Structures are given as C-alpha cells and as structure tokens.
Computed example of a mutant assay.
Amino acid sequence: MENERSHLHQILSNVDFIQSLRSVEKLDLVSFISKLPVPVAILEFDSRLLVVNQQFADIFQSDALFLNGKLLSAFSSSLYADFELALEKFATGEKQVDFEFYSKGHFYLSYFKAMYSADQQINAVILVCADVTRLKRREKVLLLNNQKLHDHLFIDHITGLPNKMAFDQYLQEKLVENLADKYTFLKIDLDHFKKFNQLHSYTQGDHVLMEIGNILDDELNPDHARIFRLNSSSFVIVIKDMTSWAVFTLAERLKMRIFQENITIQDQQNDVLTACIGIYHLALPYRAHDILQQLDLAVRHAKQQGANSIYVLNG
C-alpha cells in the first residue's frame, strides 16, 4: 500500500508544471493524461470533470468522452464526498490529500491535488487513483492470520476466555499505568475437579469448564470486571473500582451460581460441584507475580475452611 502511495505521489509531482489549466488546450490535456499509467481526472472547482482518461472511466464502467463535463456527484457519491473534504483541507493550507473508496467490486486509493492559478487561487483539482484491491485482500489475510495467532496465544481453546498469557499481559499493562484505579482480584477454584475428571472423563470436564466460564462471564459487568481462565480448574476475575462489600457480595453470588448448576460429581453421595474463592485486595507497590502468590494463598485458606468457601486477603 505504501508503494502505491509513493508511486502516485510521484505522478502528482510530475504534473506540477501545469500552473493554469484554463490556459492549456483541452486536446493537450487529453493527450497528457492519456499517457499516464493510472486513472486520472481533472476537475473544476464545482466537481465538474474537465477531462478524464479512459482508465478513470473504466473504474465506473463508462467511457471517457461520456464522463467529460459530468459532475462527480452524478456517478459517485462517495468520491464526491471525498472531493468536498479535499476542498475543505485545501482551504486550511493542505496541498494534497488522499482517501479510499470502493467501486464495482474494487478498492481504490484516491489522491486529490489542488492546482493553483498565478494569483494562488484554486482553479482545478487533479485526481489520481490506484486500484488496491489485491493489496486490501492481502491485508485482510494478514489481519486474519494475526488474529488467529493472537487467539492461539491469548485465548483458552476450551472456554473461549482470555488465558494465563493474556492475564500476564494485562498485569504488565497495569504496571505501566501505575494503577491509578483500585483493583481487586478473585480466584475461583473448582472443588474436587480432578475427581470429577477421573469419574466422568476429561472430555466431560471440558464441557463443565466451558459451562462454568459462560456462567461467570454472564454475571460480570464488562465495564468493571474481566475474567481469565488461569489453569485446569481455576478462573481469575479482575475487578476495578468496587467496594470491599460489593466484591464479597459478587463472590457469594458467583459461588452460589456454580452450586445451583447442580453438576454432579458422585450420584450415590449427592455430591455436586462447588468452588472456593480467594479475594485479594491489591496493595501498592506490587509485582505481577505477587498477585498470583497472594491469590493462591487466599484460595488455600478458603479450602481449609471447607468446600464452597470464601477467604478475603487484604494487601
């Protein structure tokens, strides 16, 4: 794309010798722009086409002779809107502007350059276009590949939630921001989940993890909380600017939602899946790995109290 821009800028620089289009014979203009290797049009100040080459007309599946004298707005509303914006920018002192537009299944770069008379009044605008459809498609493929790579690295393939690597990156970003906001961390660890996998298979365990992830995600306000899957049986929730009581209430609600799903571990013992939750109110200063250590400690204290428990650890 940058090569296309550079090429068109070079073409525009080569037409600087036209100082007064009105003093040039129209046949000379037609001869001149017909030799240029890209679509070119020269427009009056009111957007009327003074002269175009056939390559420009081909963009709109038309004929150059037919387009001559037509208003730009008569056959391309998007290009006319760009022309109007270009005039506004010219009025602020810019000499040359570029946009993108779409026509007949193709993407184009459009470059507008003001042409000035001897008294420095705009008397015409030259428009040069470049077909960048292949470049746009290649760019789309690269974006898709980058997204796939990002998803592979930062998205948990079972739950679809951000993973441990995404959590680490999130912490590093907050370190850069110096934590101007108040943060609290919740670690939700499923009770006896290893036993569940042994009794029901890891495939069934994956289904449960996906279900639990959806439950937790649905309960959270994305403006104040973000959820990550940490490892096989754990999720971490980062909460911003919430009171201690509100955080504890949220933890209770999440714990209850998991219990109410009634996911059976052992039928004979009426044993259902529960979770312990460790809450850590962050204190400053801190190091990223300290957070995980404190969350592990909070969860251990919760499990010492028994399954389906909550423990709060203040920084």
Rank of each mutant, 00 (worst) to 15 (best):
N3R: 06
E4M: 06
S6A: 12
H7A: 12
H7K: 11
L8T: 14
L12P: 06
F17P: 12
K26S: 11
L27I: 15
D28Q: 10
L29C: 04
V30P: 03
S31G: 13
I33P: 03
S34V: 12
P37D: 06
V40H: 01
L43C: 13
E44T: 10
L49Q: 09
V51T: 14
V51N: 02
V52Q: 03
N53H: 10
Q54H: 09
D58G: 02
F60M: 01
G69F: 05
K70D: 13
L72G: 05
S73I: 15
S73W: 08
A74I: 10
A74P: 07
S76P: 12
A81R: 05
D82C: 07
D82H: 11
F83K: 00
E84G: 06
L85S: 09
A86I: 08
L87M: 12
E88Y: 10
K89E: 15
F90P: 04
A91N: 13
E94R: 01
V97N: 00
D98C: 06
S103E: 15
K104E: 15
G105C: 06
L109I: 13
L109C: 03
L109R: 02
Y111T: 11
Y111C: 06
A114F: 05
M115T: 08
Y116H: 12
Q120K: 04
V125P: 03
I126T: 10
L127W: 06
C129G: 02
A130Y: 12
A130L: 08
D131M: 05
D131S: 05
V132I: 15
R134G: 13
R134K: 10
L135E: 14
K136L: 09
R137S: 13
K140N: 15
K140F: 14
K140S: 15
L142G: 08
L143I: 15
N145Y: 12
N146H: 12
K148A: 13
L149S: 05
H150S: 04
I155D: 09
I155H: 02
T159G: 03
G160I: 04
M165W: 07
F167G: 05
F167C: 07
F167R: 00
D168M: 07
Q172C: 04
K174T: 14
K174D: 14
V176F: 05
E177H: 08
K182L: 12
T184R: 00
T184N: 00
L186H: 05
F193V: 07
K195W: 14
T203H: 01
G205Q: 02
D206A: 01
E211R: 00
E211M: 05
I212R: 00
I215Y: 04
D217Y: 07
D218S: 10
D218C: 04
N221I: 10
N221V: 08
P222D: 09
P222H: 07
H224M: 10
A225D: 11
R229H: 06
R229T: 08
S233I: 09
V238L: 01
K240G: 14
A246S: 13
V247A: 03
T249K: 01
L250M: 08
A251N: 06
L254G: 02
M256Y: 12
N262C: 02
T264E: 06
Q268P: 11
D271A: 03
A275K: 01
I277V: 14
G278P: 06
L282K: 01
Y286R: 00
H289F: 13
H289K: 03
Q294S: 10
L297Y: 10
A298D: 11
H301G: 06
A302Y: 02
N308E: 13
S309E: 09
S309A: 06
Y311C: 09
L313P: 08
L313Y: 11
G315Y: 07
